[in-house]
Amino acid sequence: MKIISCTNNVSLSKDIAKKLGKKIVDTKITRFADGEVYVEINENMRGQDVFVIQSTSTPVNDSIMELLICVDALRRASAKSITAVLPYFAYARQDRKVTPRSPISAKLFANLLIGSGVNRILTMDLHANQIQGFFDIPVDNLFAAPTFVSHIKKYIKSKNIVCVAPDVGGVERARAIGKRLSADLAIIDKRRSGPGKSEVMNVIGNVKNKTCIIIDDLVDSGGTIVNAATALKNKGAKDVYAYVVHGVLTGEAVKKINKSKIKKFVISNSILNDKKIGRSAKFQIINVGTLLAEAIKRISISKSVSKLFK
């Protein structure tokens, strides 16, 4: 087994390699003056099972192209198998046509990965589970839920917890975590009052005097989750926490969250956010390197990955 790290989120790659007791393959990844990516692998890859780690977050398109070129280099170096490890899967929100003449970009990304020579995908908390069907190769979709549950049990001592889905699409995720915590479920019903106007939030479920934990797979601009926290507090919630797998955090997201009614905002390190967050006491980053390393180990020895979540 060989571990290769592309340049997006190198710290997570190093942590995964360390937990596996492996050294990251000596790889030279540079860019020409016009921005073209150049990859040179300085070790023999012939007959090896290779895991290429690349989180496809900002800069999204550069990260994707870097990954594809690295995979092409491995294929031409006669690697036995190539697994693309994507802690964050880009374009996952574009999984269907929402308007006429619009693309299905998640499917395009899947085609690019397969076309480059990838044999297997390992990712975490896909925004839409049906994206697995875009591939004709094995896809292992890991879940951060067990990591979140352990963290909640350790740091949130309240016995009156409600898991909150920020929208109808997130109900399954919130319910799964709520079941492990023996907690109730609440749902935020989002409705726009008009074109371009702010969202009206209605809370379905009893949250009065309870500790609310908003569960979401990703947060981008931060507007929805901040408004959800306000709606919960207005309904009498005692404290509001947020547990989010992928902290995309674009624009003023960090500033919004710092000013919000959220007591603690917990994200995984699937996306590198250290510089964005700075020294903010409201944010906490939890490591999913152990989860990814264990999944890689199981894939390499042909053991069940699904047993990680039973």
Rank of each mutant, 00 (worst) to 15 (best):
D15S: 06
E66S: 00
V10T: 13
G247P: 08
Y155T: 10
L292N: 03
T123I: 09
Y155V: 00
I214F: 11
I121A: 09
E252R: 11
V71I: 12
K197A: 08
A229P: 00
K256I: 11
F134P: 02
C163R: 03
I271V: 15
D217K: 06
F135E: 04
V219R: 03
C70D: 09
V305L: 15
S55H: 07
K233A: 01
F134I: 11
E199T: 07
D167R: 01
S11E: 14
I16T: 06
S260M: 14
S280F: 04
K256F: 12
S306K: 12
K208F: 14
A231D: 10
A229Q: 05
P100C: 06
V288C: 13
V118D: 12
I214R: 13
I41D: 02
R96F: 11
D167P: 02
I225V: 15
V288A: 09
T58Y: 09
R120G: 00
S302Q: 15
F109N: 05
G247M: 11
T7M: 03
V52Q: 02
E43V: 03
E36S: 03
K18N: 06
P103N: 12
G223H: 14
D216G: 03
D62W: 01
I299W: 09
R298K: 15
G21F: 11
S221A: 12
L249C: 09
S182Y: 09
F265N: 11
D72F: 04
A229I: 08
A242P: 04
T99H: 15
K263A: 13
D274T: 14
N202T: 15
L126V: 08
T7H: 01
K233Y: 06
G170D: 10
V50K: 06
K233I: 14
V245H: 05
S102G: 05
L12N: 01
P100K: 15
E172S: 06
R192M: 14
T99V: 05
M201C: 04
Q132W: 04
K19W: 03
S280E: 15
A293T: 05
R180Y: 07
I285T: 15
F309R: 14
F32G: 03
L291H: 05
V244Y: 03
I215Y: 05
N8R: 07
L308T: 12
K190V: 10
A79W: 10
